[in-house]
Amino acid sequence: MTQAIVELRAANIRQGDRNVLENVDLRIAPGEFVYLVGKTGSGKSSLLKTLYAALPLTSGSATVAGFDLRKTNRRKIPKLRRQLGIVFQDFNLLMDRTVEDNLRFVLEATGWEKGTGAEERIDQVLEEVGLTDRRRSMPHTLSGGEQQRVAFARAMLNAPALLIADEVTGNLDPETSKDILELMRKLGREHGTAVLFATHDYRLLDTFQARVVRCEGGKVFNAEG
């Protein structure tokens, strides 16, 4: 059995004082694409936040990209997040700088130095998401779909082990949503990145076959794709 990228056992996902999901068991293999579905408020985002250590895990065990979440303190969190790519519904781009500066920030923050191929890496990811010509654009001049592509480019910069997508199609039209989903699967396959794609839109599950994990009634149900 290969080493899992995500391994949760009997984990309780908490939001403040409240248990949102109980006794969660979840395993995601390297390069695997997983849909995480459930109604709004079913605990999907809380589960994802726990995976990228924005919410603390207080019971059960969890390993993400080799980091034991129970033992990951504040100083180690940036190192964990460098192994992850996180994309949000509202894009969360740095609106005060251009597309290339958004990408450059991540590279500088994660230890890339000038002359070590950083500029080439920016070219590469922008080409992968089809935005080479928008390199010097400010985020507010881009469409929603383009902003989301920039967010993916940013998430893919460090070839993460796991890409976490939290309702990333929530602000996009159905056609663009499917394009984004296809792009994620393509990038995941090409780079061997596991993808955990959270959505409340069950129609998207028809885009392609993959394993579906469902949050419902405070429980997580695993299903094979």
Binding site: P78, R81, R82, L84, N92, L94, F105, V106, E108, A109
Partner: peptide, 15 residues
């Protein structure tokens, strides 16, 4: 939100 986003993409507090 910019500060939080920077943290979420892996930047350390010092950076």
């Amino acid at each position: 939100f910019t500060i939080k986003t920077q943290e979420l993409v892996g930047a350390s507090w010092g950076f």
